[in-house]
Design a protein around this nucleic acid. Structure first.
Lengths: 193, 193, 193, 193
DNA sequence: TATGAATGAGCGTTCATTCAT
DNA sequence: AATGAATGAACGCTCATTCAT
């Protein structure tokens, strides 16, 4: 019984994600989700309190999936530069594996105003991530450029996202722009000097 | 008479921009605009053919304002590095002067699917901009990193936008993170080696 | 429960029919229907996909009611002339019993452009009707005037409709213009010589 | 100056007629007329008091054109049968020459509720027409079937209209269904015995 | 004569949400 | 757990009409 539930629960989130990608956050409606999932509109309210809760759940799910990626343990045992490079590779790999995920995260972040309580929940997730830890450490020991952490995160995330999008859409191929080049660009950007 | 028209016309666009900023592109509705401008909903259709035309007009307006910024003549007479640095400064200045503009541009670009004809119109504007020329030249003579131009533009635009946003919101002050530091970061990011 | 549904469903169609009669097809609006039925406008979309589907449903309902009238079996066992006369009587009776029906059919046919799929559905209904069969047979064995079937159908339908309308509106009484006279007129019109 | 006015005045009516034909009476809007005529929407109110007056004017114009057709003098000097046959030919000719006119008249008659005053104006026009005179005479001397005049007019008008429509739309050709046959059908329909 | 600006009313439609079952 | 029925609110848009110019 629980399995069934979980399946439907996740199907709803999946469809919501698809709608965000093919259209926009505003285009996510219980009507459309219900139609695509094959349940009645009101059934959505069995699984989610309301539309906002649904979107928040989706956001958290993708965020957790993203951060589950970084093998925190490993990173900590490496030299900073190696750790950073490895993280970039992981993120690149993530973008290729779950192309929808990064788009969903970005669009929801920009488009949706979560309330304070939700914001706190998200902050905790981000804070506990290995990347965040890595960036904090890098900032502390001045290995990284002395700018706000948001700037570092943004430059990394948005560049790798755009790169994987470009690859997927055939704007260019991996042969044209090997990831190594992107990696070097990002390292130069974030490293102190 | 004409003045009155232009005023209202621009008021509508201003309010639409505000709605995009405080909420999202999807939240821009003729109803809300009309209410805030203080006119009847149907009056909006006196000024714009439909919602899409309104948003396109807003987008083009902001884009033109942004590119009107770059003093094309000047940039061409300078060494590449100086020209690039100067452009970054201009963009930073723009972000401080018209804080809404960059957000509007970014959100409209990501959120809105303009039709082909509109897309072409926009492409022309972007192409003719001094920055685009500068980046093309830099890519050609290998002064810039050999990656797709979209990656360069993204890294520059999104970083400076986030920086000005952070400053405005008091996340930190200019003293904490002087622009020079951002500038150096971006130069390292885009320059070949 | 089901009864309730069917009742409302048919009430909506009834009111739509009334609007067509007292005004025109163009005057059929979900707003007006809702107001007269005593439900909210959006509730109409619980029962019908959209306005067009509503009108099509109404059209098909009336068409089926009209053709349900002709006792196909009986007509076939009679001589052509008797069959034809009997059909005219049936149609006259129908016009008196359901005075709205013929008007609705006529107005919807002339005013409304159903899409191809709907057109096909309607064609099937018309084709399978006993009248259509009768007319086809009459044309084939030259009992009927050798003109297009549409002309025969028109002359019969529009005359009987107008006659019943006149009677109902008191333009004249059955005593003034007995149906027999109409019947003779129509027989003379359609019969070959 | 007057010529110019008359031109525009009639252009408006022409476009209104076109809209009725290609769509419906309900589709006639000042907006659409203005666009097609190439004038501003408000300019229509220079020529017509309101939408209803415009439609009434159009109706009267077509009705007058239709009745201008029948050469009253000639008909009166002929035997009834010859006169009737000649009138049918005239009407057929009219349908071929002004195919829009009969459709406009029919749609406006069915679709539009003119107020009493307008109704009276129309009645006068119809009454004074040669056909009406002819039919009255035929009814009086029992040459015509003793039914209401509306039935006779309807049978004649709607049949000839449908026939010309069929011809124009290529449902069949004049060779397939010569007018003579239609004429005979109508004569049999209306003549007493 | 002609029109631009303006608007209230209406339209078809979608939506998030509630509630009884 | 699931859903059909229902609805108020909003949306984009068109319309007939008025008015000042």
């Amino acid at each position: 019984m629980k399995k069934k539930d979980d399946q439907k629960y996740n199907r709803i989130l999946d469809v919501a994600g698809d709608l965000i990608i093919t259209d926009s956050v505003g285009a996510v409606s219980t009507t459309k989700i219900a139609k695509q999932v094959g349940i009645s509109q009101s059934s959505i309210y069995v699984y989610f309190k309301n539309r906002e809760a649904l979107l928040l759940t989706l956001y958290v799910r993708e965020l957790k999936r993203l951060y589950a990626q970084d093998s925190g343990e490993d990173l900590r045992s490496l030299s900073f530069e190696t750790a950073m490079k490895q993280y970039l590779e992981q993120l690149f790999h993530y973008g290729l594996t779950y192309p929808k995920s990064m788009t969903i995260i970005q669009k929801l972040k920009e488009d949706y105003a979560f309330d304070e309580q939700a914001g706190e929940q998200i902050n905790v997730i981000v804070h506990q991530s290995a990347v965040q830890q890595l960036l904090f450490k890098g900032l502390a020991d001045k290995t990284l450029r002395q700018v706000d952490i948001s700037l570092l995160r943004n430059i990394i995330f948005s560049t790798i996202k755009l790169h994987t999008d470009n690859l997927r859409q055939g704007v260019y191929t991996e042969a044209d722009v090997p990831f190594e080049r992107i990696q070097r660009m990002l390292m130069k950007a974030v490293q102190n000097n």
